[in-house]
């Protein structure tokens, strides 16, 4: 099996076990409130950790605002996400803004 397929299968199994194990267990026992609250902060923290380097860095260096098409495109994307709460509209806005900014910057 190629490394890509092996990674895919392992991530697939892990993700499925997160989903099924938690649903199966969650239907039998109630988890402590503290655990559930902590888990609810994992998602924004992971997303932040992924976005930070992606938007603010290039070649392992922090870059300035005016030189980053990613950061400039992120601003209107955030505004649309904030006001519409619409997944597709947000992604579409981001991609279009990024394309326009890349063309002009």
């Amino acid at each position: 099996m190629s490394p890509v397929l092996l990674e895919t299968v392992l991530i697939g199994i892990g993700t499925y076990l997160f989903r099924s194990g938690s649903l199966s267990l969650g239907s039998r026992i109630a988890w402590p409130e503290g655990v559930r609250t902590w888990l609810s902060f994992v998602t924004p923290a992971v997303l932040g950790a992924l976005l930070g380097p992606m938007i603010l860095m290039q070649n392992n260096r922090v870059i300035s605002l005016s030189h980053s098409a990613d950061l400039l495109a992120a601003l209107p994307t955030c505004v649309v996400a904030w006001y519409t709460r619409h997944l597709l509209l947000t992604v579409a806005t981001g991609v279009v803004c990024f394309a326009v900014i890349r063309y002009f910057v």
Binding site: P44, D70, C78, A81, L87, V95
Partner: peptide, 10 residues
């Protein structure tokens, strides 16, 4: 990144 930003604000 747009998808991740959307998930942050959603």
């Amino acid at each position: 990144p747009a998808l991740f930003l959307a998930l942050v604000f959603l």
